[in-house]
Simulated scan of single mutants.
Amino acid sequence: MQALEDEIKQLIIDALALEDISIADIDATAPLFGEGLGLDSIDALELGLALQKKYGVHLSSDSQETRAHFASVRKLAEFVAGARTQ
């Protein structure tokens, strides 16, 4: 799971052009929005598109379940790993 978390961290950095952040700077359990990484709704859309493109996962922008997946890098990794096994 660590490798997938690192992949997702790099995807976040690349998709959102976070130039001053490395994967080591992102805590896998920290919130992606608000006090954590500080992403906003536009970042969520861009990240969602990048996840769909890279992993082929399907996300609904108005779903409570999707919001739960975006809670942290770890939650995203669990979602992607689960989607791969289906």
Rank of each mutant, 00 (worst) to 15 (best):
D6E: 13
V73A: 08
D25G: 09
D25Y: 08
S72M: 05
S63D: 13
Q10N: 14
E46M: 03
Q52Y: 07
E7F: 01
S61T: 14
F79W: 04
D25S: 12
K53A: 12
T66R: 00
R84M: 08
H58P: 00
L37T: 12
G38Y: 08
G36M: 00
V73N: 11
A44N: 01
Q10M: 11
A28Q: 08
V73M: 09
A15F: 04
K53E: 13
K75N: 10
L11G: 00
A50S: 12
E35F: 11
E35H: 05
Q86P: 01
Q10V: 10
A71I: 04
V57F: 13
L16V: 10
L45S: 12
K53D: 14
I23H: 03
A28V: 12
A81Y: 05
I23G: 01
F70K: 06
K53N: 11
Q64Y: 05
D6M: 12
A44M: 08
D62W: 05
I12E: 07
D20S: 15
K53Q: 15
E65D: 10
L76I: 13
A15C: 08
Q64S: 11
Q86R: 11
R74I: 00
A44Y: 01
D14A: 06
S22C: 06
V57G: 11
F79E: 02
Q2R: 09
L51A: 02
F33C: 02
L39W: 09
L45A: 11
D14L: 01
E78F: 00
T66L: 05
L76V: 05
D14T: 04
E19K: 14
F79I: 04
A68E: 13
S61A: 15
I42G: 07
E35A: 14
L47P: 03
A28S: 15
I23K: 02
G56W: 06
A71P: 09
L59K: 01
A81C: 04
Q64K: 11
E78D: 09
Q52G: 15
E19R: 12
A77C: 07
L47V: 02
K9G: 08
S41F: 04
L37D: 09
G48E: 03
E5K: 15
L49M: 11
H58W: 07
F70N: 12
G56N: 07
L76R: 01
D40N: 14
A83Q: 05
T29A: 13
T85N: 11
G82I: 00
Q86H: 09
A28G: 10
Q2Y: 05
I8S: 08
Q64W: 03
A30L: 06
S61R: 12
L18T: 03
D20F: 11
R74L: 05
L4N: 09
